[in-house]
Simulated scan of single mutants.
Amino acid sequence: MNSTTEIENQNLPEGEDPLWLIFMPPLTWAVHFMASYLTAAIWCAKFSDTSAHFATVRIAIAIYTAVALAIIGGIGGYGFLQHRHITGKTPHDDDTPLDRHRFLGFATFLLALLSAIATIFVATVAVIFGSCE
């Protein structure tokens, strides 16, 4: 038995890895989007006619963004490590436990990257708009 076959036949943590981890980055972006939108909408509905500054909303969205990017970055980093498990060869088109394990990591990493970009785009709106008007 060669070393490649031994690597592919090893007991991978594939069954122990939660499959919902792949959906966490887009879910984190969606929660960030809703929290940012609701914060701005409620603030503008309640305080737009007063002298209250929009900076409070910007700070809240900055905090939401930092937390969301930390979660997305952590999950993306985990997916990248799972993708680079044992060997760095691509593509992942063999029907082996190692390739399935690495493909799930690659998909998690790419979804995390896409979610991070979407989260930054949502936060950019708070920078562009300076008031509720």
Rank of each mutant, 00 (worst) to 15 (best):
N2K: 05
E6T: 03
E8I: 10
N11Y: 09
L12A: 07
E14Y: 14
E16P: 00
W20F: 14
I22S: 13
I22F: 07
P25T: 12
P26E: 11
Y37C: 02
T39F: 02
I42H: 01
C44R: 07
F47C: 01
F47Q: 09
F47L: 15
T50Q: 06
T50D: 11
A60N: 05
I61P: 01
A62I: 13
I63C: 05
T65K: 07
A68H: 03
L69S: 00
G73I: 09
I75L: 12
I75W: 00
G79V: 08
G79T: 09
G79R: 08
F80G: 03
F80P: 00
L81R: 12
Q82L: 04
H83N: 11
H83A: 14
K89A: 13
L98F: 05
D99H: 15
D99F: 06
H101K: 08
L104M: 14
A107N: 10
F109S: 06
L111Y: 06
S115A: 15
I117K: 03
I117H: 03
I120N: 04
F121L: 12
V122R: 13
V122D: 13
T124R: 11
V125Q: 07
V125P: 00
V127H: 11
I128C: 02
F129C: 02
F129G: 01
C132A: 08
